[in-house]
């Protein structure tokens, strides 16, 4: 019962946040709505027994990505010299594409074989997650650090001022 109420409340806020991201006039407000949506998603992770991921979500997304985005919005506002508003164009094709994607996903989903829910999660999810991360997926995990270094170097090279 409690999970059901939490699900409905969280999903209302998540949909509000998502709609705010795509239709808000001010770019800054869009970023704040995105922060709301990402924060609510962390709540969903808690509902789904993924405590570590909820913490990672709040730290990386709401802490890191939103800060980066706000920085970029401020910087571009300063570069263009005026307050950024952004508008939508082609509302009808956008609605059509969104609707088609939604219907396709739903029809694939309802037509596919639904796995029966296999009871509760393994009792210690954090232990299982770390075991997988540093066991079976060790190589992928290490490759990820190489990717992050490459991304940092790429971002620095791109945004550096030309001499």
């Amino acid at each position: 019962m409690g999970e059901r109420i939490a699900f409905y409340v969280l999903s209302i806020f998540l949909v509000i946040g998502a709609l705010g991201v795509v239709i808000s006039k001010s770019l800054f407000r869009s970023a704040l709505f995105l922060a709301l949506a990402l924060f609510i998603t962390a709540g969903f992770y808690l509902l789904l027994n993924a405590e570590v991921l909820a913490a990672v979500q709040i730290l990386l997304y709401t802490g890191g990505v939103i800060t980066l985005l706000v920085f970029a919005i401020m910087l571009t506002g300063k570069l263009t010299g005026r307050f950024i508003t952004h508008t939508n164009r082609g509302i009808f094709p956008g609605l059509l594409a969104g609707l088609v994607v939604f219907i396709t996903l739903i029809s694939f989903f309802s037509g596919s074989y639904m796995i029966p829910e296999k009871g509760p999660m393994t009792p210690n999810v954090t232990f299982a997650l770390s075991n997988l991360l540093f066991g079976r997926y060790m190589l992928a995990f290490e490759t990820l650090s190489v990717l992050l270094v490459a991304a940092i170097i790429g971002a620095l090279t791109l945004s550096r001022k030309e001499e």
Binding site: L14, I91, P93, A97, G98, L105
Partner: peptide, 11 residues
């Protein structure tokens, strides 16, 4: 949420 994102990317 994914479909709302598609709408945003296009518009």
């Amino acid at each position: 949420i994914f479909s709302i994102g598609v709408f945003g990317v296009i518009t």
